[in-house]
Every structure is written in C-alpha cells, then in structure tokens.
Design a protein around this nucleic acid. Structure first.
Length: 298
DNA sequence: CTCCAGGTCGTTG
DNA sequence: CAACGACATGGA
C-alpha cells in the first residue's frame, strides 16, 4: 500500500482487499451516507470522513482511495484502525475457503469486505435498535439520535453533520425523548444499556480482555440484548472474530447452503463456529453478501 | 388493510 | 426448555 498527501487530501494507493461499498453496505455499521457509487461520507470516533474509491473497476486489482480533507494524523489515529488496515485478509480468506471450498466464488466476488473496528458504545446502542427493524430504518434512527444528541461538526461547505452521542449525553436523555427518535419499545432497553455503561458496570475495555463467553454473558445481562445482538456487538464493537451472529438472513442462507431444512438459530451458530473457528465472523460477512447476491431476502 | 422487518422478553404448555 | 404473542414504527 502507498499513502501520501495531496493538497488537503490523503491518497491511498494499491490497497488490497478493500472495497468501500462492500464494507459499508454489509450491515455492520449504520452511520454513513452514500454520495455516489463507491463514494461515501461517514462518522466514527467523533470524526467525519468523506471517502471515494477510484478507478480499478476490476475487483482483482488493488484499489485506490481519496480521503478528502484528511490529515495523516487523523489517518493514523482513527481511520487506519477503523478500516482494519493491519489485518491480512488474504490469509483469512484462504482459511475460510479451506473450511468450505464452495465459498470461493462468493469471496472472490466480495473480496473487498472488511470488518470495521467500530466504537463499542455506538455498536451496542445501534444493534439494540436494530432488532425487528430494517437496515434503512436503523440508519434513520442512528442519524436522528446523532442530530439531537451528538456533537455538531461544521464542514467546509457550511453543512452540519453530527457524531454519535456519547454515553454521558445519552444518560441525560429521557424515555420520552428517545421515543421521539422513533426507537419505540426499545427505549427502555437503550436506557438500561446506557445506564450500565455510564456507571461502568459494562465497559468495552474490560469486555475485550474477557473470554468470548464471558463477554457475551456480560452483554446479555442488559435487557434487550439477546444472542444475536450480543454477537454483533462482540464482532463489530469488540472484535471477537469467532462471533457468528445469526439473524433471519443468516438463517435462510445457512439453511440453503448446509441444512436444507428448518434449523434453529443456536444450532446454526454452533455449526458455523465449529466449521469456521476464529474466522466465523469474517465468514458471516461473506455469507451475508452471498445471501444478498442470491436474493435470499425471502 | 395486512404483513413483516438483521429480535427479545415474558408467559404458557 | 420449546413455542408463541407482544412490542413501536414504517414501508411494501
């Protein structure tokens, strides 16, 4: 990979295994907007980023990217880790294909998927919201919460964007106010999660050094956090790559690919964890892309 | 108008 | 412990 500044922008060239669209649109994060094909704006860790992927239509070629108005410092401080630039996806893919050769084509077609390193608190709240909602709705609610309770960032154009609220700010927000953001019956769930994080009963740094099961158990002590949401937070917010969240999509996909009959979610999760091991989370992302490609959305 | 969405909870067999 | 309806909200 090659990296340099041009005017106020940062240029990344010859980046392997990274496609901004595949990565953002695979359901792991919600605080972004598509501006054009392969061009997005997103907010994370209190920062705004406008990123465009250039040229290289051929998926087999490494991509190049413009990070508009971004300093090398911000890249090293935030985006490098956010986009998981230090992980060798080649080795992971090889390992998954070894577990099941049928995934080779899917992985080839979506070789640009990466698992982001997202903020723990934002991930927790976002996936509590996600239950029984469609992705566009989830995004809408995350944006609404940010506009109301996040930090304002004024862009060069004068337009204002908003970061995801801090736990300190959300702690001040009432049940009623949350419902104004259309979270519905999830309001008390969110409030309990905020409460536990605010008081230090649940802490990302602490969960990260626990065992997978220990961290999951801790997360599931929050009312409104079940098996699936916990797995999403473990995978996307705490980087337990052995987590394999099973939702309605994954259920359909795994039944189609492996079971050929109605199968319980926990049986699917167990099967996937045994098959893919510590790369189960990565496999889940490729499988999700596969499901979308196959139109398995019922 | 009905049905269902990246689920989870509380209540019944 | 497996099954089932409720839960807010909005779009198909």
């Amino acid at each position: 990979m090659h990296i340099y500044c041009r005017d106020n922008d940062l240029i990344l060239e010859a980046v392997n295994d990274f496609d901004i669209e595949d990565t953002l649109e695979c359901g792991q994060c919600f605080h972004f907007t598509k501006l054009a094909p392969k061009e997005y704006e997103l907010l994370a860790y209190g920062k705004y980023l406008h990123i465009r992927q250039c040229g290289d239509k051929e998926l087999s070629k490494p991509g190049s990217f413009i990070l508009y108005n971004t300093s090398m410092e911000d890249y090293n401080l935030v985006w490098k880790r956010y986009f998981d630039m230090d992980t060798d996806y080649g080795a992971i893919k090889e390992n998954i294909i070894n577990a099941d050769g049928r995934l080779k084509d899917v992985i080839e077609n979506h070789r640009g998927i990466r698992i982001l390193n997202q903020d723990f608190f934002e991930t927790l709240i976002s996936f509590i919201i996600s239950q029984n909602k469609q992705i566009p709705h989830i995004k809408q609610i995350v944006h609404m919460l940010s506009e109301k309770y996040g930090e304002e960032i004024v862009l060069g154009s004068g337009r204002k964007v908003y970061t995801f609220p801090t736990v300190e700010r959300l702690y001040q927000v009432s049940d009623e106010e949350l419902r104004e953001c259309k979270v519905g019956f999830r309001a008390p769930y969110i409030r309990q999660a905020v409460d536990k994080v605010y008081h230090g009963e649940i802490k990302g740094e602490t969960l990260k050094v626990l065992s997978f099961q220990g961290a999951k158990q801790s997360l599931m002590s929050i009312k409104g956090v079940g098996e699936k949401v916990a797995n999403c937070v473990l995978l996307f917010g705490l980087r337990f790559t052995e987590a394999f969240p099973v939702d309605v999509w994954m259920k359909r996909i795994m039944e189609e690919l492996y079971f050929h009959q109605d199968t319980k979610k926990d049986a699917i999760e167990k099967f996937a964890c045994e098959l893919y091991g510590t790369n189960a989370g990565y496999a889940q992302q490729y499988l999700f892309a596969y499901g979308r490609e196959m139109g398995l959305g019922k």
